[in-house]
């Protein structure tokens, strides 16, 4: 009975959505949208791209025009890490035991790979305004290096307090930079630094700074989640 009821509600909701969206003014048929009339067309117009000064169009939208939205995304990640810490975080913790003892080669090899992964992730973060990538993938790479060390080294234990400090620091600095936009310019997260020439490493105003902060914040948050998953309460 319950399953039948759920099925009926699902179909009814789907029907309502289809009827509401079908052939209305706000939802034209596929391929018949004039992009220049939409907001997204304005994001791509040449003057606005010049104004933001980021060579990467996605970054110019994500951090240039919609930074407030990005702040929301970072908050979602923060809340999820907070939830994991609420459920799994305990005071006295020891790391999860591995079923096997990683041999010398795996330990040393993963430590060398860690350096390369970190260099690549910071490269991705720093070039977020020039090439594909940016704060979120770079931060995920930083966290993946922590996961690699957890799985490849049976004595590794990450410094969770340092991660928490870094996360709070980066997050608050992100908001402070946005608030400074109210001082030096007109809006929250306004781009008040000189934008420079498009394509240079030092260009696009506050975008690289914000991306570095987002990368550090995302990396330390996901690393904290991984740390919470891979540690367990010490039995007294």
């Amino acid at each position: 009975m319950r399953k039948l009821f759920g099925l009926a509600i699902t179909f009814a909701l789907g029907l309502v959505i289809i009827l509401a969206l079908n052939n209305t003014v706000n939802f034209p048929a596929f391929g018949e949208v004039n992009l220049s009339e939409r907001i997204s067309g304005a994001y791509l117009s040449e003057d606005n791209v010049e104004e933001v000064g980021s060579a990467n169009l996605v970054t110019s939208i994500v951090i240039g025009f919609r930074t407030f939205d990005t702040l929301g995304e970072v908050t979602v990640l923060f809340i999820s890490s907070l939830g994991v810490a609420f459920i799994l975080g305990r005071k006295k913790q020891k790391r999860m035991n591995l079923n096997f003892k990683p041999n010398f080669m795996l330990r040393v090899g993963s430590n060398i790979l860690l350096a390369i992964i970190l260099v690549t992730s910071f490269y991705i973060i720093l070039h977020g305004h020039l090439s594909p990538g940016g704060g979120f993938p770079g931060g995920a790479m930083i966290a993946s290096s922590v996961l690699l060390l957890y799985l490849a080294d049976d004595r590794f234990r990450s410094n969770i307090k340092g991660f928490k400090l870094l996360e709070g620091f980066a997050g608050s600095l992100f908001v402070i930079i946005g608030l400074l936009g109210l001082v030096f310019a007109t809006a929250f997260f306004a781009n008040y630094l000189p934008t420079g020439t498009i394509g240079n490493f030092l260009s696009a105003g506050i975008i690289p700074i914000i991306y570095v902060l987002i990368g550090l914040k995302v990396g330390s948050e996901i690393a904290g989640i991984i740390d919470n998953f891979l540690t367990e309460e010490e039995r007294a």
């Binding site: 795996l106 090899g109 993963s110 790979l113 390369i116």
Partner: peptide, 13 residues
């Protein structure tokens, strides 16, 4: 460097 280190270590593991 990444491939030369990661591939043999992975295969040995």
């Amino acid at each position: 460097v990444f491939i030369v280190i990661s591939n043999p270590v992975g295969s040995s593991t």
